[in-house]
Amino acid sequence: MSLDGFLSRKKAILVALNSDTPDKSPKGYVDEPLLPLIVLINTHADYVTTSSCSGRICTYLEGLDEGATENCEEGDSNISTNEGEEEEPKGFDENTSLAAVEASKRAKGGQWLYVSHDPVELPVDQEEGPSSRWIIDTLFGPEAHRVITMEEQQQQKHAQQIKTLGMARSQLVYFKFEPMILHIEASTPTSAKQFLNHSLFSGYRNSGILPSAKRTMLAIRSTLKLDAPIAYIPHPTTSAPSSSSSSSTTSSSSDPIYLMVSLTYLRVLIELSNDKFHANVDQMGRFERRLTEHLVGGANSSAQGGVKQGDQGAWEDKDARRERKKREGLERAAAAAAERARKAEEEQEEEQEEEPTPET
């Protein structure tokens, strides 16, 4: 890994960030809540951010088209499809394992139905319950007209309830809350390790150094994620509640989307995600303060001959902890040996005092 290569890549990234050209994310620009943190990190000589997301609530429809691929990480993602002729979507054999089903779905394209980088605004004048369709309109966006609620399914005549296993093998819609994620390139493995320790100390427990032969990359992630299936589109091989399009032999963009949870449960998911949004913002603030104090502050102090570069403050890495434990162990062993010698000396003095004085 070359330092010159890191410096040239960092320069190119900073030029792109300061330009008016949209980036590769769906929004085309950096999330505003992340700007102070990104500026702080990129100011340091050893780091540069490569992608980011401040956090989002979204609903995602799995893809089944063979000609489409999903490029979906925990940050902002792009969904690309190949133009041209595509194979018809296929169902799964009855004996197909759920692991194989999930792997197949992840390898094919999908559709974002709703994405928000802010908490969902709950309308105070809307009623809660089966009649409250605003949740469907919000979470399913342009496909809201295809959604059939559980209450509507129960009202359908001659409805056939699909088995749970059939739902799992169907085309699923997921409700997701995804917290802040940062991808960062470090100049050296040592600097990456230092940044990782600050991240873990700030609560980003899912963070780690990514394996790469050419770069030293970090992914900074927390455990605030929420991911739940909420609806499905049956495959032709599964039975589903009867509808005007259920006789079709293949799924299409006009097939119904069947909710597998109640509207009340969807509202609970939204409220939980809004709470996680606030926790996510608070965690970002703590992270920014720690980096300012220990990372940038330490670098500036070392340049002035103050705090030594690499001082860890309230935290210590694995090597420092090992050295401290070794030093403390030696100190305890030395203290124990001194105590044993002292006791032996005292016992010897007592024995001498107890010996009778010989008569003359």
Rank of each mutant, 00 (worst) to 15 (best):
R9D: 15
R9A: 10
R9I: 10
L14K: 04
N18T: 12
K24Q: 07
P26V: 06
P26Q: 14
P26R: 15
L37V: 00
N42Q: 06
H44F: 08
A45F: 14
A45V: 12
T49M: 09
S52A: 15
C53S: 14
R56C: 03
I57P: 02
E62D: 06
E62I: 08
T69P: 00
T69K: 13
E70P: 05
E70G: 15
E73A: 11
S77I: 01
N82Y: 04
E83Q: 12
E85T: 14
E87Y: 06
F92L: 10
E94C: 09
T96F: 04
S97L: 12
V101I: 09
V101L: 01
R106G: 09
G110Y: 08
Q111F: 12
S116K: 05
H117S: 02
P130G: 04
S131R: 03
D137M: 02
G141Q: 10
R146E: 09
R146N: 14
Q155I: 00
A159I: 05
Q160V: 10
K163W: 12
A168V: 09
R169Q: 15
S170H: 09
V173M: 05
V173T: 15
P189D: 00
T190F: 09
A192I: 00
K193P: 03
F195C: 13
N197S: 14
N197M: 14
S199G: 05
F201E: 06
Y204H: 11
N206V: 02
N206R: 13
G208D: 09
I209D: 01
L210H: 00
L224P: 04
L226Y: 09
L226A: 03
D227L: 14
D227G: 00
A228L: 14
P229D: 04
Y232N: 07
I233D: 04
P234V: 07
T237S: 04
T237F: 06
A240V: 05
S246V: 08
S246I: 07
D255I: 02
I257V: 09
Y258R: 05
Y265T: 10
V268L: 11
L269F: 08
E271G: 01
S273D: 03
F277N: 01
D282H: 08
Q283D: 01
F287G: 09
F287H: 08
F287P: 03
R289Y: 12
H294I: 02
G298P: 03
A299V: 09
A299L: 14
N300Y: 08
S302N: 12
S302C: 13
S302V: 03
S302E: 11
G306T: 04
G306M: 06
D311K: 03
D311S: 13
G313P: 03
W315Y: 12
R322D: 10
E323N: 07
E323H: 07
E323M: 11
R324Y: 01
K325P: 03
G329E: 05
R332I: 00
A334F: 01
A335V: 01
K343H: 13
K343F: 12
A344C: 01
E347A: 12
Q352C: 05
P356A: 06
